[in-house]
């Protein structure tokens, strides 16, 4: 196992919810390369035991990670870092995409296209690329 539960630390009275602290640490490990796609996260119970926190809190953190696509639940094995993972979190990737699309939108407005027309072009493009 690349990252064991005792490499995590939580500070319960910091004011930041414990599940957020866990998510941040998982992401930090990914950024630092300690966690790679396909790696298993420590089990909920192990995590809760070593950090002395409620299992529900750990589960909460893990489900958030799952919903953000960082990790996925593998039946019988636990949480695994997603294989499709590029880099950064969903929000980071979103903001990068936003940075790219912002000038294009600006140009469209200058060409006199209204919101509906811009959206139909984007939909068309997205439709053409549908897998």
């Amino acid at each position: 196992m690349p990252v064991s539960s005792n490499q995590f630390t939580v500070s319960p009275s910091s004011g930041v919810p414990i599940f957020r602290q866990l998510i941040d640490q998982v992401l930090a490990f990914i950024v630092a390369g300690k966690l790679k796609s396909g790696d298993m996260l420590p089990s909920t119970r192990e995590m809760a035991r070593s950090l002395e926190i409620n299992t529900m809190t750990v589960s909460k953190a893990y489900s958030k990670l799952e919903s953000e696509g960082v990790a996925q639940r593998v039946r019988g094995r636990g949480m695994q870092i997603s294989t499709a993972l590029t880099k950064g979190t969903l929000s980071k990737r979103k903001s990068e995409f936003q940075n790219q699309i912002e000038p294009a939108l600006h140009r469209g407005r200058q060409l006199g296209l209204n919101d509906e027309q811009i959206l139909s072009i984007i939909k068309k493009l997205l439709g053409g690329r549908k897998p």
Partner: peptide
């Protein structure tokens, strides 16, 4: 810690009165 263990292993329900908030930070759901 032992409360947490019981809770994790046996799905024990715990009701815990206190006015010391730091006790709860870690363990309360």
């Amino acid at each position: 810690k032992s409360l947490l263990e019981k809770n994790a292993e046996e799905e024990q329900t715990v009701l815990f009165s206190t006015h010391i908030t730091s006790d709860l930070e870690r363990i309360a759901s």
